[in-house]
Design a protein around this nucleic acid. Structure first.
Length: 440
RNA sequence: GUGAGUGUAGCUCAAUGGUUAGAGCACUGGACUGUGGCUCCAGGUGUUGGGGGUUCAAGUCCCCUCACUCACCCCA
């Protein structure tokens, strides 16, 4: 006996979700749903259509797009062999699968530009911390087929509208241009040249960065590096004429649309495929992982995947980070809308006949789409009312032997304690008039 | 992969190395035989994350280990 209990206790405590992977439960899920609904609404208005790409792909797809020497590819991918020995990877980001889908389905034959959005989980094998998880959800958009800066402006302003529509204030919207395959090598060279004399003063990480990704030194948080990079050449000064024109056109369009922005010439993107426009939405409230959304142009990627030369641009929003901000009262202007929904009616019963009657009434109301809860397991009337109160139910219906014999049941409104009686068969009419009409 | 911090009841947390490890919240019942919120009362079989050590004595000190958290790296 003692042995059996010990064993069952152990097995009950054995399982927990994998490290960095979390459950999303009802109080939060309503925030998630509101974010998703808002995204659908706003993105649709800009002509973006939903697309669902798989969450696993051939490993090669991510190596080709993200870049062989990036941290994501080198050490963060969930990669495994399937039963036929093919190398499969859980997507660490959303753009590559969408580009593969675009090319494979010849979507470039449809009128350009084509605009898509998607949402779903991404996977990276990283050490979790605030705002960083091994499974994390993104809502992303990708638009293909034009390099017109008007599209960049639309996407940036769409992101801004989305954030504002959710009720968030005080976020930073930053934009930059990192040039194209023509002008970036010149800039890289200038940067290497600038740092070559100061390399000994840099932090150990930046010494490595100097070798494989010198742009990243601009992003370093260490004081000595911040000091040493003063006077470093700016990307902006190395843009080719086309890139400069494109960037200037974007900025003037943002002004035209009254979309506020800050130029951040030090902004660097982690993925190799970005060209020209890059942008980021950040918040100081998020901890070290401060980006809630980020994106940019990737004008060469479709071609890289075997499609026709097709300029493209997109961004991704980190769901968990966005939800964290929505839970921060100082940033969220519409807290009230985040309330958890509550049952409209709770049916409390006393005795077996009343319990049956209550269940019948509950079902009749539920068929009309009204959320009805009932008392279970013969709890006392008091405890049923307490539960109704805890659920924040609108009304309680009370049914006992007295009500069955009189044919009338009692109703009680929990917000003010008012009570009354109604005939059993008039329950639906009563609530249609008093509950539904009041609410709408 | 690196570093730091924290692990005590379902939750949030107490407990100068010294009796039988406590409190609030939550939950259930009662006071109020059929009326929630307020009040009062009652209800706990906790491997003090796990293992080892020091000690007459360890939740407390030491070592190992695991988990979580934050930060670095990197990124949404």
């Amino acid at each position: 006996m003692r042995f059996r209990r010990a064993q069952s206790r152990r097995s009950a405590e054995r399982y927990s979700a994998l490290k960095g992977i979390q459950d999303i439960l009802p109080p939060d899920i309503y925030i998630w749903q509101r974010v998703e609904e808002t995204a659908r609404e706003i993105f649709s208005a800009y002509g973006f259509q939903e697309l669902r790409a798989p969450i696993i792909e051939a490993t090669e797809i991510f190596i080709r797009s993200i870049g062989e020497t990036t941290d994501i590819v080198e050490k963060e991918m969930y990669t495994f062999s399937d039963k036929a020995g093919r190398s499969i990877t859980l997507r660490p980001e959303g753009t590559a699968p969408v580009v593969r889908c675009y090319v494979e389905n010849h979507l470039y034959n449809l009128p350009s530009p084509q605009k898509f959005f998607y949402s779903g989980p991404m996977f990276r094998y990283e050490r979790p911390q605030a705002g960083r998880f091994r499974q994390f959800f993104q809502i992303g958009v990708e638009a293909f087929g034009t390099s017109d800066p008007k599209l960049d402006a639309e996407i940036f302003s769409m992101l801004r509208l989305f954030i504002e529509r959710l009720g968030l204030k005080g976020l930073n919207f930053e934009v930059n241009s990192i040039g194209c395959e023509k002008c970036r090598p010149d800039y890289r060279k200038a940067l290497l040249n600038f740092f070559s004399g100061r390399i000994n003063g840099l932090c150990p990480d930046c010494k490595r960065r100097y070798e494989y990704n010198p742009l990243r030194i601009l992003d370093c948080k260490v004081d000595v590096c911040i000091e040493l990079r003063k006077g470093a050449p700016r990307v902006m000064d190395f843009l080719c004429n086309e890139c400069r024109e494109h960037f200037n056109a974007l900025l003037s369009l943002l002004k035209l649309l009254n979309v506020p922005y800050v130029i951040n010439p030090d902004m660097v993107r982690g993925l190799d495929y970005y060209t020209r426009t890059t942008f980021e939405v950040t918040s100081e409230q998020l901890g070290a992982q401060n980006a809630v959304a980020a994106g940019g142009r990737y004008d060469r990627l479709v071609e890289e995947f075997g499609g026709p030369p097709t300029p493209a641009i997109g961004f991704a929003i980190g769901m968990e980070r966005l939800v964290a901000l929505l839970r921060t009262p100082t940033l969220n202007q519409v807290q009230g809308e985040l309330r958890t929904p509550a049952p409209e009616i709770f049916i409390a019963t006393i005795g077996a006949p009343a319990e049956k009657e209550g269940l019948v009434i509950a079902n009749r109301l539920r068929e009309k789409g009204i959320w009805v809860e009932v008392g279970y397991a013969g709890n006392s009337l008091k405890s049923q009312l307490r539960r109704a109160d805890r659920l924040s139910a609108g009304y309680v219906l009370i049914i006992g032997d007295d009500e069955i014999s009189s044919g009338k049941l009692k109703w009680k409104r929990l917000s003010d304690g008012s009570q009354g009686e109604i005939l059993f068969q008039e329950v639906y009419d009563f609530f249609f008039k008093n509950l539904r009409l009041i609410q709408s």
